[in-house]
Design a binder for these strands. Sequence first.
DNA 1: AGCCAGGGTCTAA
DNA 2: TTAGACCATGGC
Length: 211
Amino acid sequence: MINAKEIYYILLKAYGQPRWWSDDPFVVMLQSVLVQNTTWSSVEKTCAMFVNQLTPEYIEDLSTEELEQIIRPCGFYKAKARTIQALTAWYRKYHFDRQAVHEVPMPRLRKELLSIRGVGAETADVILVYAFYKASFIIDAYTRRFLFRLGYNFSDDTAIKLFFEKELPEDAQFYGWYHWLILEHCISVCKKTPKCDICFLNGDCRQKLPK
DNA sequence: AGCCAGGGTCTAA
DNA sequence: TTAGACCATGGC
């Protein structure tokens, strides 16, 4: 069966140099919460309303109600507003300094993020990788479906994480690129065509996961 | 019209 | 420890 590295190079060849989520760590934090169980287009529209004021200082100055109204189109707006405020407060402890966060060991950082209500495994890993360059492989719905289409049937996310992390170099940039390629594949191909050359299973890229 | 989206939390068994 | 209910809006 195809392994994690082989998958990466197939995707790389198909889609080219992957992009990074955002070079701004706070944008990554905000968007990773907003995108929870929501479409990316809603996130983009919401972020456009901030008009270059997507800074932690600006968010801090908003009342909870104001923040809720701004992010409303992304759904679950009460929960997400609370989470964004908690994340911002967490980042303040590091003086909004990316380097200061980066210096903290990954496992401790991950625990800190997971202790924030509204931040689960995926959100924490997105923030770790794309905002702070820490290597923790990101598993989302696309990753699960993609692997299933390749013929894998993992019991849970722990097994998936191991599948990637045991074989790949412990490299945040690599993890970030990998996740982006899976995304690129699922959005550009799986959603638009009934078949593709990369997913094997029945040749149907749009099928849902069992259970 | 109903289903789904890059999730997370809480609860009951 | 796991399955299911719930959170909410917008797009198709």
